[in-house]
Write a protein that binds this DNA or RNA. Sequence first.
DNA 1: GCCAACGTTGGC
DNA 2: GCCAACGTTGGC
Length: 152
Amino acid sequence: MKYWLMKSEPATYSVDDLAKRRKPDIWEGCRNYTVRNFFRDIMKAGDLAFFYHSSCPEPGIVGVMRIVGDAYPDPTQFDPKSPYHDPKSPRDNPRWLARDVELVAKYPRVVTLSELRATAGLEGMEVLKRGQRLSVLPVTEAEWQAVARLVG
DNA sequence: GCCAACGTTGGC
DNA sequence: GCCAACGTTGGC
């Protein structure tokens, strides 16, 4: 099993939006080939992922999700009304993939970006690297455990 | 295949 | 709103 960190702007889709579903929901709109390849080749059903809020007053990790099922074509790429519409994506060979996720736990508090930066053992964490902009990032088991200890 | 221009991300 | 970083596009 692998570990991940998945970013979302809470104004667009927050951990509370996922919590309200009370069932798996689609993680859609990823438009980056590295992320597409993660979804296609590396991420597996049962993997765990941190839910990370970005571009907001308190960026940080807000909960844990589990990956459900397999990757499948992201329907928003074919929807002209969607902000994620990609008119160049061929119907018979879709460019972009989505995953389904279910909420495992919403944390009782935000584990903030500044707290992550200050935590021993997280020095190499991808999300802390300067210039790192991928919305889905791998997390090592040691990093996963270190973050879990922060929330008890 | 190169690479400059452009667009996006995301913390601050 | 700024801007550094870096992915994508497209002319050549």
